[in-house]
Simulated assay, not measured.
Amino acid sequence: MNPRERVRDTKTEIHRAAVELFSSQGYDKTSLREIAERVGITKASLYYHYSSKQDLLRAIVGTFLDDIFEVLARSDELPWSPEAERELLGAYVDVVIQHRSTGPALLRDIAAVLAAFGDDLDALIAQSRRFQLWLAGPNPTPADRLRAAAAVETVGAAMSTELDLGVTDAEIRAVLLDAATAILSRRGTPVSLPGDR
């Protein structure tokens, strides 16, 4: 085979086309025929890879959920320390960046994702709460727990933006990690309410 010939990775092309269409017009309004046409294959060929649109959604989103769950679960075994916090937060940022193209599809059609994953999402939510509690540090105050949740949501902002920022993944990682650790660095700081003197 000529080394210049490109070996077609049909599954990757199907995933890319599906994410683009799900993000732009929604899961419900996207047909398998449209995805097949975008890839340049027949609908029958698409069925060879995925038995249904929900099966395709599970394949796309499932990889992200598996990767994020694996990172979150590490907090169950790893004692908290500033170094461990930065390491695990960095791993979380890496997964979010790696899967950020999936974000708009996830957010736009959360009902479809819930229907496709059900109990798996319940387990992920429970694990995410344990991760946030771990990020809050030893003996956290309610404000520290809220800060930990805010740090995680800050990283999640990369999943919700469709902007072409014109920056590298390394730059995105640095900004998100900096923003999340800035929030966590306020741990233990008393909260001042308006009107306090």
Rank of each mutant, 00 (worst) to 15 (best):
residue 56 L to H: 06
residue 97 I to Y: 03
residue 63 T to K: 08
residue 88 L to C: 11
residue 142 P to Q: 01
residue 126 A to Q: 08
residue 82 P to V: 09
residue 153 E to H: 12
residue 61 V to L: 04
residue 160 S to P: 06
residue 39 V to E: 01
residue 132 Q to W: 00
residue 112 A to E: 13
residue 157 A to Q: 15
residue 116 A to P: 05
residue 78 L to M: 14
residue 108 R to L: 14
residue 89 L to W: 10
residue 96 V to S: 00
residue 97 I to T: 00
residue 98 Q to P: 01
residue 98 Q to V: 04
residue 34 E to F: 09
residue 97 I to K: 04
residue 130 R to Q: 12
residue 135 L to C: 01
residue 47 Y to T: 03
residue 110 I to C: 03
residue 64 F to P: 04
residue 130 R to D: 09
residue 147 R to K: 02
residue 88 L to F: 08
residue 123 A to Q: 12
residue 108 R to C: 05
residue 137 G to C: 11
residue 153 E to N: 15
residue 91 A to T: 11
residue 138 P to G: 12
residue 117 F to L: 09
residue 90 G to D: 13
residue 63 T to I: 07
residue 68 I to D: 07
residue 69 F to G: 06
residue 123 A to P: 06
residue 88 L to A: 10
residue 162 E to R: 13
residue 159 M to R: 04
residue 50 Y to N: 01
residue 65 L to C: 06
residue 53 K to E: 05
residue 69 F to V: 06
residue 50 Y to V: 08
residue 129 R to T: 12
residue 108 R to A: 02
residue 94 D to F: 04
residue 93 V to Y: 00
residue 146 L to H: 08
residue 110 I to Q: 13
residue 147 R to G: 07
residue 44 A to V: 15
residue 130 R to H: 09
residue 60 I to V: 13
residue 114 L to K: 01
residue 90 G to C: 06
residue 110 I to S: 10
residue 44 A to R: 13
residue 107 L to P: 06
residue 102 T to F: 15
residue 79 P to C: 05
residue 41 I to K: 08
residue 39 V to A: 03
residue 130 R to E: 12
residue 154 T to K: 07
residue 156 G to W: 09
residue 35 I to K: 10
residue 60 I to P: 05
residue 120 D to K: 02
residue 66 D to H: 04
residue 111 A to H: 14
residue 96 V to D: 01
residue 62 G to H: 01
residue 88 L to Q: 12
residue 36 A to Y: 12
residue 74 R to W: 04
residue 43 K to Y: 07
residue 149 A to R: 11
residue 66 D to K: 07
residue 80 W to E: 03
residue 156 G to M: 03
residue 121 L to I: 09
